[in-house]
Nucleic acid binder design. Structure first.
Lengths: 252, 252
DNA sequence: CGCAGTTTTGATTCATCTCAATTTGTGTGG
DNA sequence: CCACACAAATTGAGATGAATCAAAACTGCG
């Protein structure tokens, strides 16, 4: 935000000099975290220029050859897995500063689809180059491992949600997670617009879209949130949080 | 298997010379995959000796400082996440050749518990050393990234299972997954012993133990499997597989 | 041999899904 | 710029799969 003036100028600079990590206001959230000035310059050099996507367009599809991971610069994505028999599971929603595409490393093919849920821009990070550089810069190597591991931990959280929570709890956890991530990016943690449909939320949470809608309405009736289509205002964060701990507090 | 004679000798060698990757019959499943002879020797040097665990004992607990990842040499493990409010989600079952503990990289603390479900032995792989070596050996670095990524892909499979499948489908997928993994290790893919309780299966699959038991019984009535407590014999793999695709084959 | 932990099975309840109708919102072309 | 068509969301009523509560049987360990 405070770097807006600077950012606006960059596109005017000749294409050889692209928008760099070292200038990016997401650097504290994203891959360069913890790098020295000099090392960040080296990272700048391998980042392939940004790529813009219109809402609804695919960043990659399951089966595409894997070459790069992507950092979300602006906008909002979903990733989903689609099986032959027609099952569709949304595996995550990604916002600015988050990394996409790490599932592709294992097989050299992307294993899921990534779709822009609004007009978006990503940085392209050629993975072979990133590996080469990270074998030279230990802090980059370690941070890459942390990013991969964080994704595993995040997935465990989703497994917990899907395996043990009821619809209300899932949706409360979902809203609180979004809230926290918006907050971390300098936006209001209590007032935001959903970028995804009820059906996509439902797919992510293992619920049907009608259940998502009903549960939103129910939260609204309880005074926990206010919902108007995609616009959410969280009225009572503590009480929403309290939904996650079973009322009695006992071990079940 | 063909290396059995050699392996039997190793324990008699003085303790300074520990059982090494280069001699391990799991090397094609485990971390050293794809390494040259010489590089494998360097990996041998950093593997901290094996560690034996009695059934029921913890390899690590959530909150323990993260120092190493572990490769299962023999035996069987579960990992689970436990929340303050008493929720317990089994996040995976690990057998020979599989890697444990990668969730700890992100925070430098283990985020789940790992428990031996039978008497087991693991190799200890100090992670800082592994990072150091992998920055020198590019194929090791790449393989480590693949192992991390494979875990992410596996987790997506579980999310799909928990998010979209009914009890029968979950249990069929679970049995087929075990079957495939036993098969890959030279055991019968159709005849094996479960190491975990119905409750642990249920926790992993997001079901109650009674539902797991009932569904086993139901499969048995259908002639798909035979169950006697922990012993499973899969009578009809194709038909079990067919449970995973909805009967009509339509896209839903 | 007995007891604790595990598994099986039954009866009932309940949360979520399914099916269906209606309302609201959004993008497009006349 | 408005109207129309299509997509998304809401809401209701009823069906259903899995959970819950409960009891009995089995297993294996000490």
């Amino acid at each position: 935000m405070h770097a807006n003036a600077k950012q606006k100028v960059i596109p005017l600079i000749p294409p050889g000099l692209k928008l760099a990590c070292s200038q990016c206001n997401l650097r504290e959230l994203c891959l360069p975290l913890g790098l020295s000035e000099g090392d960040m310059g080296r990272l700048d050099n391998l980042i392939g220029g940004g790529r813009k996507l219109k809402r609804g367009h695919h960043l990659y599809r399951a089966g595409d050859p894997f070459e790069s991971i992507f950092a979300v610069k602006t906008g909002f994505f979903k990733t989903d897995v689609l099986t032959e028999d027609g099952r569709d599971q949304v595996t995550g929603f990604q916002m600015a500063g988050e990394i996409l595409g790490m599932d592709g490393i294992s097989t050299e093919l992307h294993t899921c689809n990534a779709v822009a849920l609004e007009d978006s821009e990503v940085c392209l990070i050629p993975f072979a180059d990133l590996e080469a550089l990270s074998s030279e810069i230990r802090s980059l190597q370690h941070h890459l491992h942390k990013v991969l591991s964080r994704e595993i931990v995040r997935d465990h959280g989703v497994m917990m949600l899907l395996g043990t929570m009821r619809a209300e709890e899932r949706l409360a956890a979902f809203l609180l997670n979004l809230s926290q991530r918006f907050g971390a990016r300098g936006y209001s943690p209590a007032d935001f617009n959903l970028r995804m449909t009820r059906e996509e939320i439902g797919s992510y949470l293992g619920l049907k879209l009608e259940t998502v809608s009903r549960t939103f309405s129910h939260f609204q009736d309880e005074g926990l949130i206010s919902v108007q289509q995609k616009h959410i205002r969280i009225m009572n964060i503590p009480r929403l949080k309290s939904l996650l701990a079973p009322a009695d507090g006992r071990i079940r």
